[in-house]
Design a protein around this nucleic acid. Structure first.
Lengths: 206, 206
DNA sequence: CGAAAACTGTACTCGCAGTACGGTTTCTTG
DNA sequence: CAAGAAACCGTACTGCGAGTACAGTTTTCG
């Protein structure tokens, strides 16, 4: 990694934190460069304008999240050959990861952008939309794998169920941030996990 | 309603739409007054500063939503004496209301503010937090009423379940807005409804 | 009719986005 | 080690919007 790339990363990291705390429109380039320790000229050397910053931020965020999710769901598959058990394990891992963040989840960049759509060009909006579609498609694939082995006890649409995980995470983040209680996100993910169990696991004999 | 109050309402309505589309920080007072058809002096006659505008916006939003939810869950109770059936009916009504919005749900002001927390004073943040707590407490009361009649089939925490509705709505709004598909929100609410059924309704004999 | 409410007009200060461009340092590679 | 490219710095602008101050004008209503 060259020196320039390291600077770009530093800028993007600082900018992302600022955007998640104040929104894109209220994040000034001046404060970003002040924290990054470079001048305005230096900033514009790396990014043509603020919208270029936004594009790179999203690209970076999606990439990071993709790796995180890949890792979590891969580990689940390693720990169980049964697709349902693997998914349930992964959801527990996900809940743990979310709970272990020191100051709570910093926020979802996709959600932040969604509430400031008018500030971004089509390219950025398409990027966010495509990343959501990708994630949901991935969850859908996992659910298909489960349904192939365990016939669902209930007639639910698997696309909707795949969507639901994104909803729970994004909604849980908002809940946690608003109430300043990081554990709510964790609990919501576990509640979703319970729903999955209810749908696919054979009813336990009591 | 005096003339001044009407102007305040107009300002608040325009400002809310702008904030939901671009964020609070990127919403300029100039564009608001331009659309409202009054001068900057006129604006500052009604609101001391931008933060006062934010406070009134939130107060108005919470009030409106409270009325909407009161109405929906009251109608559910009117249509069935059984608390579970009443809740299921209300959830269906809620899904319908969300689906009937012409251009999709405009967005949740609480979520928008949550992603721009640093821009607001403690009073605004306390207002949003309290409104979420109030809504969740209301849902919790409904769930208590259901659990008193129908023993849950599954050991779920009712507080978490009450939280879940807020999560689903906020997450569903983000999903719908990002993918530009208003129907996703409706489907998520109905999926939550199905979860409630699974938890409380006696298993149907097939 | 008169007073309060609901504004308008003008003229500022200040901070930030974004542009332009020439100069300087640091890295890299032949 | 030389030379060019990459990664910056310094300065000096334009333009927009938040917010302030305050005097003047119109509208509303008892």
């Amino acid at each position: 990694m060259g020196k320039g790339e390291a600077t770009r990363e530093r800028i993007l990291e600082i900018a992302e934190a600022a955007v998640l705390a104040k929104g894109f429109g209220a994040t000034s380039i001046e404060e970003v460069i002040a924290e990054a320790g470079l001048t305005k000229s230096g900033f514009f050397y790396h990014f043509r304008d603020k919208n270029a910053l936004a594009r790179e931020m999203v690209r970076r965020y999606v990439e990071t999240n993709d790796r995180l999710f890949d890792d979590i769901f891969e580990r689940g598959r390693q720990l169980s050959d049964d697709p349902l058990q693997a998914f349930l394990i992964s959801l527990r891992l996900l809940a743990e990861v979310m709970a272990d963040l020191p100051n709570g989840h910093p926020g979802c960049l996709i959600a932040s952008i969604c509430y400031q759509e008018r500030l971004f060009d089509r390219e950025v909006r398409d990027l966010t939309a495509q990343s959501v579609r990708d994630w949901n498609a991935r969850f859908r694939t996992i659910l298909d794998g489960i349904a192939a082995v365990h016939a669902p006890n209930e007639a639910v649409d698997l696309d909707d169920l795949a969507d639901m995980l994104s909803c729970i995470v994004d909604g849980g983040i908002i809940l946690s941030k608003t109430l300043n209680d990081p554990r709510r996100l964790e609990r919501q993910i576990l509640l979703f996990r319970n729903y999955i169990k209810l749908i696919f696991a054979p009813p336990t004999l009591s």
